[in-house]
Design a protein around this nucleic acid. Structure first.
Lengths: 211, 211
DNA sequence: GCGCGCCACCTTGCATGCAACCTAGAGTGC
DNA sequence: GCACTCTAGGTTGCATGCAAGGTGGCGCGC
């Protein structure tokens, strides 16, 4: 996101960042005027931003009552993980349908994996989570299914929020994920679809166990 | 859709219906003022409706150039079908995880199937398509995965549009689908997850063959 | 005839104003 | 003390107005 030129875009990014980071707790009421005053813009673009966030199920706007940050149900983590698994399996099957993917794809996975190793070595959990997300996105993008990319992006946002508030990513999770990812990359390099899908399933199951 | 009380909601439903039905061809330029004048409301709620439609990838709004109805790429049908398969497989696995689903779920499937039989007998393709969509939604709802329901709803909208413009649903497709659905219901009644998933795969593959 | 620049029109983005509506709280009757 | 009403504040929904930006077409120079 280079430059949020429009006021509506600024309001959207501003509010979304604050919700995803957990700076605004779930259940908290936001008002359009409040955000508008913070950013020095009018209520109109803030209204649009709130509607977008409502469509992403991050905010629940009630007519003439205000907008509440959607609190996270314990089931939500399970739902989001399940959808991510479904989408990543489906896109992986397509991306690996004709054997190993092109070098650019593998290089992107390798680069992300290298970042993960460095972040893990440095104990930088934030950087690891970021690289982790990128790793899982590579094959989704490589599948060239734009709908899948759209859905996967929405899921990543919500999972980021879950991770901050429900899960506590510790060193052992980092190490475990890193190992899973290395195995997944190896399977992708050999174009072994079934093995890759099996690993995705295990990976998700492990995440789910943390709940 | 009981009563579109708000002006923004009216503008949304109005425009969406016209896009999905194919009344407005792909590539056609729409302007907010045009729709606002048609409905006798101001541009503000129309603007909001356009943004929602843009988020659903039905409309592409360009700043100060107008909004174009997104033309349908031939790949889009494949993408949408693939995502539907992924979501329906995932939700079916959960809904059937503990054997046969509750009676309400099976009854909903049976009711939709009965509507399909009647529509097929009467040669009413529109009614069949409607009941078809309901059938596929039953297990998604039964999975109680709200994210899946949200995604599946978006996919149904886009598939409806594809069906009107790319596919031509004829009597043989109706008969074929009806047969598939009956087999799927039987598998659901017996709680046979693997058989159900296999049938979903075949069903989707058959649809895909029409392209 | 052909290419180029300018201008008028059309479009959206945002600010502002007003009215409807919901909610919380004080005040009143019992 | 308790329930009820009514009012005052706050919030959104929508209309309107204005300005910035893009597009197409006309006219001019060649």
């Amino acid at each position: 996101m280079p430059a949020p030129s429009g006021a509506a875009e600024r309001a959207y990014e501003h509010t979304k960042t604050r919700i995803l980071s957990g700076e605004i707790p779930g259940g908290r009421l936001l008002s359009e005027g409040e955000v508008a005053a913070e950013l020095g813009i009018s209520r109109t673009p803030v209204h649009e931003a709130f509607l977008r966030l409502d469509a992403e199920h991050l905010l629940a706007v009630s007519s003439r009552r205000g907008a509440a940050v959607v609190p996270m149900a314990p089931d939500e983590a399970r739902d989001v993980l399940e959808m991510r698994e479904a989408i990543e399996l489906s896109t992986a099957r397509r991306a690996l349908a004709h054997g190993a993917p092109p070098v650019e794809t593998l290089d992107a996975m390798r680069a992300s994996l290298q970042d993960q190793r460095e972040a893990a070595a440095a104990g930088d959990v934030e950087a690891f989570v970021e690289a982790d997300g990128r790793f899982h996105t590579v094959l989704v993008v490589a599948s060239r299914n734009q709908t899948a990319q759209q859905f996967h992006g929405l899921l990543r946002d919500r999972q980021q929020r879950l991770r901050r508030q429900l899960l506590h990513v510790g060193p052992q999770q980092v190490a475990s994920s890193l190992g899973d990812h290395e195995a997944m990359l190896a399977a992708a390099e050999q174009g072994d679809v079934e093995e890759f899908c099996r690993l995705v399933g295990e990976h998700v199951r492990r995440h789910r166990g943390i709940l």
